[in-house]
Computed example of a mutant assay.
Amino acid sequence: MTTADFIRGLPKAELHLHIEGSLEPELMFELGKRNGIALPFKSVEDVRAAYAFSNLQDFLDIYYQGAGVLITEDDFKDLALAYFRRVAADGCKHVELFFDPQTHTDRGVPFRVVIEGLLAGMKEAETSLGVTSSLILCYLRHLDEDAAFATLKDAEPYLDRIMGVGLDSSEVGHPPSKFARVFKASRERGLKLVAHAGEEGPPAYVWEALDLLGVDRIDHGNRALEDAALVKRLVAEGMTLTVCPLSNLKLCVVHDLKAHPLKKMLGLGLKATLNSDDPAYFGGYLGANWTQTSDALGLTKDELVTLAKNSFTGSFLPPQTIARHLADIDAYVAKGS
C-alpha cells in the first residue's frame, strides 16, 4: 500500500474548514448565472489566475467578492454538498465547519437563509455520504465587537444547532482581546470557543486567545513556536492546533512546504491536526494537505496515525463517538499491517 493509499483510507476529521472558502470557480460562475450576478472575471481560468496571493489580505479581498454569488438557501446547500463530496473521497468522517454569517448579512442575505441552507447540506451529507458535521459561527475580526454581538443575537434561534463560535478574517491589528466580551457571552450560551491566532499575528495573540477568550482550540498557531513558554503551556494543556499547511504555503506564511513546522510541532508534543482552511483558494482539499505535507516532511506512519487521532480527540464530538472513531483508526492500521 502506498502512503497516498494509506492516507486516503485513514479515518480522519477536518477541524478547520471555511465553507465559503470551498467555493470553486465553476460553482461561482454557476451560482452567479443562476442569481443574475455579473462577476468581474471572464472565465474560470481568470478566477484561478486571481488566486495568486502574497498575504492574507489579498486572499480575503477576492474571498469576499466570490461569496457575493451566494444568495439563496439552495446556494448554501449546493456549496456544502460540493465540499462534502470531495472530503468524503479523502476518508473524512467528521467536519467542524466554519461559516461567516456577517459576510452574507452585511450584503442583505438573512442569517436564516445562510444557516438553513448549510444545515440542509449537512443533513444530506450525513445521509448520503456518511460524513457527520457541526457548525462553528465565526465572528469577523476586522469588524467591531458590536457587530459580533449583533450576529450572536441573530444566531439565538439556532443555538441548539451551532456547536461553537470562532474568530477569523484579518488577523494583524485585530487582537483576540478585541472580542473578549462577545466570547464570554458566547460561552455563557453554552458554545465552544475557538480562534485564529498565530498565523500572521504574533505569539501574543495566542496568549490572548487562551487567557482573555478562554478558547477550547487554537486555529493555526504556527507562530506559537517562537515562544518556548507558550509551547510548554500548549503541550501541558493538550491544546489542539488546527494547522493548514497548503494555506500557509499559499499565503507565504511558509515559503516551502519542506520548511513547514508541522513535524516539529509533533516532535515537541503539540496536539497538531491537518486541515485545508479554504481549499478552493489554497490548492487542495483535506487529502491533498495530508499527502503533500507527508511527502514534503517525510511523515512516518506513526505520525500520520497520531494526526488522525488528534483530529478526533481535538474535536467537539461526544466521548463515546470519539472512542468509536479511534477504534476505527486502530482497526484500519491493524488490517494494513
Rank of each mutant, 00 (worst) to 15 (best):
A52G: 14
K192L: 12
V44T: 05
G336R: 12
A82S: 09
R233D: 13
A308C: 01
L191F: 03
A88G: 11
R223K: 06
L268W: 01
Y63E: 12
K42P: 15
F183I: 03
P202S: 10
V253R: 08
A148T: 10
G121D: 02
L225V: 00
K263N: 01
M1E: 13
L286W: 08
N55C: 15
G36L: 05
L137C: 14
T306H: 02
T321C: 12
Q292G: 12
T127M: 06
L152E: 06
D227E: 04
S43C: 14
M28C: 11
H325F: 12
L213W: 07
G9A: 09
W290V: 13
S294K: 08
S315F: 02
A52M: 08
K33Y: 08
F76A: 03
L257D: 14
L266C: 00
K153W: 04
G287D: 11
D58R: 07
K271H: 12
C252W: 11
L191C: 07
G117E: 09
R223I: 15
L15S: 10
H196I: 01
A224M: 08
R223G: 11
V305K: 01
A52P: 15
A334Q: 13
I322H: 02
R48D: 06
G221L: 00
K178Q: 14
K301D: 11
E200L: 11
E126M: 12
K153E: 09
M1I: 07
G36M: 06
V305L: 06
H16F: 14
Y332H: 08
L299I: 13
Y332F: 12
N289C: 09
D277F: 10
D61R: 08
A288Y: 13
L79G: 14
